[in-house]
Amino acid sequence: MASNQTTIDTAYKTMKDTPREEYLQPGSPLCAGCGGEIAVRLALKALGPKTIVVSVPGCFGLLALYPYSSIENSMLFAPFASGPAAAQGIVDGIRIQVEKRAMVDPGSKVLVLTGDGAAYDIGLQATSGAIHRGLDFYYLCYDNEAYGNTGFQFSSATPTGSSTSTTAVTDSSQGNSLRKKNLFEIWKAHNPSYLATVAVSKPVDMLRKFEKASKMSGSKLFIAFSVCPTGWRSEPRETVKIDRLAVETGVWPLKESVNGRVTHTYIPRKRPPVENYLKTQRRFEHLFGACGSEHTLQEIQRDVDEYWRSISI
């Protein structure tokens, strides 16, 4: 599969084209070095001020902490599993008033914003329903690979070998023994209009994906790789560097699916060993050193290699 760099009609050629308008203001209660926050900032720049954000419990529930809000957009805070369903109510409520009551169309968009706990676990059913119904909305999952807001417990997005506060490292356990759930393929099986993975170290790629999606109707879904210094026990200043390592080692493939057709938007040709990425985070520290698990490291590398082999570049 080829990169699609050549034929794109886009307003975003380089980082300098990033919109200057800010809808996510500084001063939020999020942690220093939060990767997800950068993703939201970029997403709102691409989607604009008429975007209604539907937020659920998770780190980004803190974007509106009474009586303040870190974002300038309208926001609805909904229970954990209900984000996409609440989005459906907003979209439908506005549409029926435009059709029936001759209300002026406000031209708004609805963006569901959740972590991986809601997206991969408790809200999967509501998301399935919304995509299946063809709901015209955006979904941004900031995937920090655990329940970050409650103290970094295991979620089904947690990768193999990661220690979390509920998959502890012991004499008999090397952290999480399960594989990360493949949400991209699960969502893709619902035939959404647009689906993409994004990473903040590739901001132009991310902006272009939102730009492309915003020209389509239907469900437009994004899974954002989100470095979590607090949970991953990494250096806050290294967030973008770690994000880039995830992309370059092939751990986090950047791709999109347009009406079911998958294209990788960036191909890491060299793919350094995954250890370069894993070593930046103390959640994986037990895999290295004297007591380390060569087996788990090999398993992680093998999974990455097999992925890139399977897509037959």
Binding site: A86, G89, G129
Partner: peptide, 23 residues
């Protein structure tokens, strides 16, 4: 507008949110 939901939890979520839009 009539919508079939996939659960009561989602049904109530949509109902409440739509009510806030003025429907």
């Amino acid at each position: 507008r009539f919508v079939n939901f996939e659960s009561e939890h989602s049904m109530f979520a949509a109902a409440g949110a739509a009510s806030l839009t003025g429907a």
